[in-house]
Structure formats: structure tokens, C-alpha cells
């Protein structure tokens, strides 16, 4: 962290100091991790608000038309996707690039399947968005899918970068971050959206 200063002297040129311009801060990994965790903490508030709204509006009511088997299938799909995303991180840690790419591709495929499942559910729902439960159902699943879509975009970018060889066993924060975000979105389904809409 020593600064490479030009010899001190008078005149305007003396102000010119060549730091290692934007050299990574020594705490850079911790900085990146904390930033992501704070973002996740903030985003989770959005989900919790909608969960509160669900009970405020509809109490514990749940219409007959809720497709629990499909919801369960979606949950399993997303859970598998999370496990595979972790496998991707584990693989790159050991330097196994093909294994990482395969696991990530499977993660992405399961994510796309999930979105297809939600679309199916929306198209076949026997209730509209204009009822208290429907309001909660469509807004919560909609919010979740929009997060999932953003996660998919990130995963696809990471996949592309991975194919170009941008990551290694020592340098893969991009993957870790994308997977952590993906896991967060999955956790929101498992812990908030699914229990709130399908189980309670």
C-alpha cells in the first residue's frame, strides 16, 4: 500500500500522485461479501412486506384452487437448483472448470423450468388478482419471479465468463456472488413465498 509519489516540489505538478490507481483495497474480499449481504438483507424486506400484506389482507384464507402439487414440484426444482449452484462453486474451488460449467448449466435449466412452472400456474389459476388472496399470490410470485429472472441473467453472464476462462480456483468471487444471490432468491421461495401462499 505504499504510494508512489512523485518527488515533492512546488508547482502544479507536485499534486500529481500516482497511487496504484484504484488498487484493490486489502479488505476487498470482505468488502464485496459485506456489500452483497447487505443487499440481500435489504431485498428480503421487500418479501417480508408482501408476506405481512398477505396475512393482513387475507388472514389465513386459502382458496381451493391453489395447486399444491405444482407448488411442491416448483419447490423441489428450486431446491435442486440451489444445490447444483453450490456444486458449481465447489467445482471451481477445486479448479474443475468443466464440472463447474455443467453444474451451472443445470442450475440455469432448473431456473428456466421454474419460471415455466410459475407461468403455467398463473395461466391455470382459478382465482384472479382482484381477490385478497389473489392479490397476495400474484404479487408475491411476481416479485419472486422478477428476482429469479435477474438471477438468471447474472448466472448466464457468469456462465459465459466461465467459458471464456475468466475464473480460477483462486479467483471466482463473481461465481460465489451470483450463486449467493441465487440461493437468496431460492431461500425466499422456500422460507417466505411457498409457506405463506401454499402451506398456511
Amino acid at each position: 500500500m505504499t504510494a508512489l509519489a512523485t518527488p515533492a516540489g512546488g508547482g502544479a505538478g507536485a499534486a500529481l500522485v500516482v497511487h496504484e490507481a484504484h488498487a484493490p483495497h486489502p479488505a476487498k474480499p470482505a468488502i464485496d461479501r459485506l456489500g452483497l449481504w447487505l443487499f440481500i438483507a435489504s431485498e428480503s424486506m421487500l418479501f417480508s412486506t408482501l408476506a405481512v400484506a398477505r396475512f393482513y389482507l387475507a388472514g389465513l384464507d386459502r382458496p381451493e384452487g391453489v395447486n399444491l402439487p405444482l407448488g411442491l414440484a416448483l419447490t423441489v426444482d428450486l431446491f435442486l437448483s440451489s444445490l447444483l449452484s453450490y456444486r458449481a462453486v465447489t467445482k471451481i474451488r477445486t479448479g474443475d472448470r468443466p464440472g463447474f460449467l455443467a453444474a451451472l448449466a443445470a442450475t440455469i435449466v432448473l431456473g428456466v423450468l421454474f419460471i415455466g412452472g410459475v407461468a403455467m400456474e398463473w395461466a391455470s389459476a382459478e382465482f384472479g388478482p382482484g381477490t385478497p388472496y389473489g392479490t397476495a399470490f400474484f404479487s408475491m410470485t411476481g416479485l419472486h419471479v422478477s428476482h429469479l429472472l435477474s438471477g438468471l441473467v447474472v448466472l448466464i453472464l457468469v456462465y459465459r465468463l466461465g467459458r471464456r476462462g475468466s475464473f480460477s480456483a483462486d479467483d471466482h468471487w463473481g461465481i460465489t456472488a451470483a450463486v449467493r444471490y441465487w440461493t437468496f432468491v431460492d431461500a425466499m421461495w422456500l422460507l417466505v413465498v411457498f409457506p405463506t401462499l401454499y402451506l398456511l
Binding site: 424486506m45 408482501l50 389482507l57 382482484g130 389473489g134
Partner: peptide
């Protein structure tokens, strides 16, 4: 932490207007 609640409230109004929800 708290700004998300404002975003959520405004989003609910928006959904009521454009997506037919009934918050």
C-alpha cells in the same frame, strides 16, 4: 433496511393500477 417498505407500498399502488390487484 427501511426504504424497501416505501418501495413496496408504492409498488402495491402501482400493481393496483396496472395489474388488477386489490391491495
Amino acid at each position: 433496511i427501511f426504504t424497501q417498505f416505501l418501495a413496496a407500498a408504492l409498488m402495491m399502488v402501482l400493481l393496483d393500477r396496472i395489474a388488477g390487484t386489490s391491495f
